[in-house]
Amino acid sequence: MGVLTALAILAGLIVVHEAGHFFAATWQGIRVSSFSIGFGPVLLERQRRGVQFALRAIPLGGFVAFPDDDDESDIPKDDPNLLSNRPLHQRALVIAAGVMANFLLAWLVLVAQGYVVGIPAGFSAAPGVLVAAVQPNQAAALAGLKPGDRIISLAGQPIGGGQEAVAELVKTIQGAPSRTLPLVAERQGQKVKLKLKPSDLGGLGRIGAQLQPNGTEAFRRPKGPLEPIRQADHDFALLTKRTIAGFGTLATHFGETAGQVSGPVKIVEMGATLAKQGGGSLFLFAALISINLAVLNSLPLPLLDGGQFVLLLLEGVRGRPIPARFQMAFMQSGFVLLVGLSVVLIVKDTSQLPLVQQLLGH
């Protein structure tokens, strides 16, 4: 049930993104030929007002297509309602609308969280530190730590609770590069004894795991009808800032952070886990993924909205359209890059699923 919930959220976010492009075009009277979720062969389709609405076989995103892209279209090339014949600012709005829709959805989800779940009222800490994620082939993974484990003892010292416990644990790990530390973790109600050997990174110990405090987030009822909106403004700004910073760190320290990049399989697994927790977790998951989709699509890469925007900017600077040959090469290179990256991430994430690891004998 948790997996289905996570898949439904991801599908909804994709639909919202593509709907942004679609409604920005139709609102301006621009012709649209199709609205598709997924890529590849059509599984289900419906024609309405000259637009094909389709569900396709490969669930790696979606797209809105225009007659301009179809060489067999019977619409005259000089039709004023073709996207390519519209002014630069109208085309820019169509391209930017997907990102705007995801940002707006994230804010609305955070507002809904305030009204439905309540306003965050502090964290109720419990002993231990949770392992939220583990990087493959790093010290934590080699020691046998798994996502969901609760570390209760390290180097013979019991672990307290709260953010202070996380800071103390990180301090101990950083101070023990290349040293073997006995560790006790709780996994599904059973204690597991492990040996953790932090790697040496510039004189500091590193284990390749994401740690977080153990406990539950408490919520209270809003003090007034506007408090959820103010809280959503604060949380939206904070999540967006951290997401942009994360992409910046990935670009500037790619070698160190590439292992933390997750694909759709890992995202669904994380969403399924949060669905079981209930409360405000799913609201936060939906908002965070929606913001990540918006920021990702803003990057100036081929096939992404940011790449399309770069072509528009170049056209504005040149004062005339970019040659079709250059645009085609730009898009084709992006297709190969993004599909290749998606396949790699899916294979990597799938290989780390517990059931797959058991089948492989890990």
Rank of each mutant, 00 (worst) to 15 (best):
V64L: 06
G61W: 08
D78M: 10
G271Q: 09
A165T: 07
P354R: 02
Q135I: 09
F219G: 07
G20A: 03
S153P: 03
D349V: 00
R318S: 13
A286V: 05
R320C: 10
S199W: 08
H17N: 07
N214L: 07
A139G: 08
F326T: 14
V295F: 02
D233S: 14
H17C: 03
L288R: 11
E217T: 15
L105T: 11
L284K: 14
R91T: 08
V310N: 02
R46C: 08
T216W: 04
P213D: 06
I289A: 00
V16A: 11
D305T: 09
L204E: 11
L93Q: 08
R46I: 02
P354A: 04
P80H: 08
L104K: 07
G29R: 13
A133P: 06
F285D: 02
G29E: 11
G20S: 10
K266P: 01
A65Y: 05
V339P: 02
F39R: 09
I151K: 00
G203W: 01
V170A: 09
G122E: 09
R206H: 10
I119T: 02
S290L: 04
Q332I: 13
G280S: 13
P177Y: 03
P80R: 11
P228C: 08
L110S: 06
A143K: 05
L345Q: 07
A165R: 00
P41W: 04
V134D: 00
Q357A: 04
A218S: 14
V134Y: 01
V51Q: 04
P354L: 06
P87F: 02
Q357H: 06
L204R: 15
P228G: 07
G215Y: 06
G280K: 07
L284T: 15
A232H: 02
Q332V: 11
A133N: 12
L201F: 09
K223A: 14
P136V: 06
A237N: 12
